[in-house]
Amino acid sequence: MSHLHQVEFESPIGIIEIVGTDEAILSISFSEKSEINYPISPDSPQVITDCQQQLEEYFKGQRMKFTIPFLSTGTEFQRKVWTALTDVPYAETVSYGAIAKAVGSEKAVRAVGNANSKNKLSIIVPCHRIIGANGKLTGYAGTLPRKEWLLDHEKAYKENQSK
């Protein structure tokens, strides 16, 4: 088992915590802390440094896709859902039902919601792009105001790109 590394950095919507090994990212989550205890350091593995850099580029509106290696641990169904989430285009939203259909379990809308809530890779596995069938923002582990901010940020950036 390789050593776990943790880094925190300030984003426009709060402190983000990155946990990973020397080879891959294991989790990206929002922290409710008010100060950073684990800043990036010269000892941080390249994958962690790259992850923070790509997230910072995302928040500056300079990145739409992530290219860092990550590991998702979960059931086969959860991994299918998370893979389907990575296919949702930047600045677009889909319903839980559409994801259920995409993974071949049309009636499993609640199970999709449950898998979504267990996603440990915020932003790069974009569970914030999944909305209720009625178009409303529903549950998000990182809080609904953050979900709304992320969607508004992506829409604004995408509009700037097309001008």
Rank of each mutant, 00 (worst) to 15 (best):
F30Q: 07
G74K: 04
E23H: 12
G142T: 08
I18L: 13
V94H: 06
T67L: 15
S117T: 02
E32N: 15
L26Y: 06
A108C: 15
I130A: 02
G20Y: 00
Y58C: 01
I130Q: 02
Y90C: 11
R79S: 09
I36F: 04
S162W: 09
L144K: 14
G97T: 07
I131T: 14
T49N: 11
N119M: 06
Q78I: 03
T49G: 11
Q78F: 09
T49C: 14
Q161V: 04
K33N: 07
K158G: 03
I40T: 08
I123K: 00
K120D: 12
T75G: 11
Q78S: 15
I130K: 00
S117V: 04
D152I: 03
S31I: 04
Q6M: 14
D22G: 08
R129F: 06
S31A: 14
G74W: 02
I68N: 01
L144G: 05
D152P: 03
C51G: 07
K65H: 13
G113A: 07
L144M: 13
K158S: 11
D50Q: 10
P126V: 02
Q52C: 11
P89M: 08
I99P: 00
T83S: 15
V109L: 10
T75Q: 13
S41D: 06
L55P: 01
E92V: 03
K80A: 09
G61H: 02
I40N: 07
G132W: 02
I40L: 15
M64G: 07
I18N: 01
M1R: 08
P69M: 03
T143E: 13
E56L: 12
S29Y: 09
A102R: 03
L151F: 08
A100C: 12
K65I: 03
M64C: 07
K155V: 03
G135T: 06
I15F: 07
L4I: 04
T67V: 08
R110M: 10
T21L: 07
I40D: 00
Q161W: 10
F66I: 02
A115M: 05
I15W: 05
N160H: 13
T143M: 12
I68L: 12
K118Y: 11
I124L: 15
D22L: 11
G20N: 00
K147A: 05
S11M: 10
S34W: 14
K65C: 09
V88N: 04
Y58R: 01
K33L: 10
L26W: 05
